[in-house]
Computed example of a mutant assay.
Amino acid sequence: MDLIGIALREAWGLVRSGDAELWEIVALSLRLAGWTMGLTLLLGLPAGLFLGFGRFPGRRPLLFLAHVGMGLPPTVVGLWVALLFWRSGPLGELRWIYTPRAMVVAEVILTLPIVVALVATAIESRRAKLLPLLLSLGATPLQMLWLTLREIRLSLLTAVMAGFGRVFSEVGAAMMVGGNIKGETRTMTTAIVLEVSKGQFDRALALSFVLLGVSLAITLLLTAVQRAGGGEGEGGGGMG
């Protein structure tokens, strides 16, 4: 209990004093999470829409792979991404190993299946009523996309929350492809692992409290947006 009390005091001291290293780590963690989720949504939304509305051979196996991918082991992903960007690897000439770029690639691989699976499932559960309604309204492809996203907005927010949670809790892949380099690739999770390895449990706990605070703030923000959006329409009722 004394250790926890010391960690709480140190965490407050780090925040209050404006510890440069701490905020550098927090800023990098948020920046990586932002890039990861931006790219994940850019790739995952079209794929989820395609799997949700589409009817083609191989669709079920692809959807199954998306669901399986939600549980990808981070260390396995980190290993393959590291091999890909290693100096003697296929993309070694890019020199991305031990950079934030490689970390984003690994984290996108981990979060992409979450968005694809949740979006596809949300659309599939409404497809029988949603698609005929959109066609009867004579909606253009752009209008169909907008109305569909409105209809599944809460499921989409859930996917974003799950994705952010995955990014902020991930450590294995980040360390393997990022190297935990101070000022360049050190995030909150990798910094905690480093402090524990040094026996600095008070600072590790302090960092963990800061991480929990940031995660809680993001969760509360997304939850507030989710509640402000109201319930998703049932059978097209939410598009009126």
Rank of each mutant, 00 (worst) to 15 (best):
M161G: 14
M161S: 15
M161R: 15
A162G: 02
A162S: 13
A162T: 12
G163E: 01
G163S: 10
G163P: 02
G163M: 00
F164I: 01
F164G: 01
G165R: 00
G165Y: 01
G165L: 09
G165A: 10
R166K: 09
V167F: 08
V167G: 02
V167Y: 11
F168K: 04
F168V: 05
F168Q: 09
F168I: 04
F168E: 08
F168A: 06
S169T: 14
S169C: 11
S169Y: 14
S169K: 12
E170V: 08
E170D: 04
E170H: 07
E170Q: 04
V171Q: 01
V171R: 01
V171F: 13
G172Y: 14
G172S: 15
G172M: 10
G172R: 11
G172F: 12
A173T: 06
A173C: 11
A173R: 00
A173F: 09
A174R: 01
A174N: 11
A174D: 09
A174E: 09
M175V: 14
M175I: 15
M175Y: 07
M175C: 08
M175L: 15
M176W: 05
V177I: 10
V177K: 07
G178C: 09
G178M: 07
G178L: 09
G178S: 12
G179E: 06
G179I: 00
G179A: 01
N180V: 08
N180T: 11
I181R: 13
I181H: 02
I181C: 04
I181Q: 07
K182R: 13
K182E: 11
K182G: 09
G183W: 10
G183F: 11
G183L: 08
G183A: 09
E184S: 15
E184D: 12
E184N: 15
T185C: 00
T185E: 01
R186L: 09
R186F: 08
T187W: 09
T187S: 10
T187D: 03
T187H: 03
M188T: 04
T189P: 03
T189N: 13
T189Q: 10
T190W: 07
T190K: 05
A191M: 01
A191R: 06
I192W: 00
L194P: 03
L194I: 14
L194F: 07
L194D: 12
E195L: 06
E195T: 02
V196D: 02
V196G: 01
V196Y: 11
S197L: 15
S197F: 02
S197K: 05
G199D: 06
G199A: 00
